[in-house]
Design a binder for these strands. Structure first.
Lengths: 130, 130
DNA sequence: TTGCGTTTACGAAATATTTCGTATATCATT
DNA sequence: AATGATATACGAAATATTTCGTAAACGCAA
């Protein structure tokens, strides 16, 4: 029996940081702050990003290596698990729990390439098989 | 040129109220408050719900008929439009903009009936044709 | 018309989230 | 060891969101 000890859900700002760490792997505060400011219009201060990452470390969303002067942060929250939890909450909140209507909206709105459609069809087949 | 005057995005608590109005149609505060308390564990006070609905009216998410003593509230935010906007924000925030990986997660996690799968397949075909 | 139950109005408290100012520590270079 | 550049720590301000207490207004029944 392993305690899964569910992680708290990240806030919006925290999620942005997680995305960066998921994509880039373990990183310093400066790196993350740089990435945030690439993507955004308004500058975010270095200490703002630092504070958030410290809070996230307290919440166990991140961990860090403090051996070197420049701390290196690592995402503890696993991407798939986090996304799954957020998705469930979102489906309930915005689509009254109907994953299907969410899927229909998502497919309808965005333009989806043939490759992606094939992926989805393959998944559907897999589900249908059992 | 019709001004679409984008509505502000509802907060979580506001979205719960919208869901109820979308489903039930124009309703009084007491009705909405009752519904909220059916679905939830912790009691939400009448004036709490009232205040939220008043704020939402200011934001134009709702409108109300004040002719009778008991005001009747109506959802101004259209369900599909609101869902679409929320979905876009969510896909960006949690799935780095990839609607497809969201769809894959959604289909993978939830158990989806054959009817629903058929619906989705039909939509995919339609997309592939057009 | 008086009183009771219900409603809305208003403002503020409680909470959560985001941002930043300032102090302090560390390292590398001189 | 002193200096400058860069790092973290801490606390608090700014903002957004949620909740509620209290008062005033209304309508109905006695």
């Amino acid at each position: 029996m392993s305690k899964k000890s569910n992680l708290p859900q990240p806030t919006d700002a925290e999620l942005e940081i997680l995305q960066i760490l998921w994509e880039a792997g373990p990183s310093t505060v400066r790196f993350v702050n740089g990435r945030l400011n690439e993507q955004q219009e308004k500058e975010i201060g270095y200490t703002t990003t630092l504070k958030l990452m410290q809070i996230m470390t307290e919440k166990k969303l991140l961990s860090r290596n403090t051996e070197t002067r420049t701390h290196v942060y690592l995402a503890e929250a696993v991407q798939e698990v986090t996304q799954k939890a957020l998705l469930k909450k979102f489906v309930d909140a915005a689509f009254q729990g109907s994953a299907t209507s969410l899927v229909m909206q998502a497919l309808g709105n965005h333009q989806t390439s043939q490759e992606e459609l094939d992926e989805i069809k393959a998944l559907i087949e897999k589900i249908e098989k059992g």
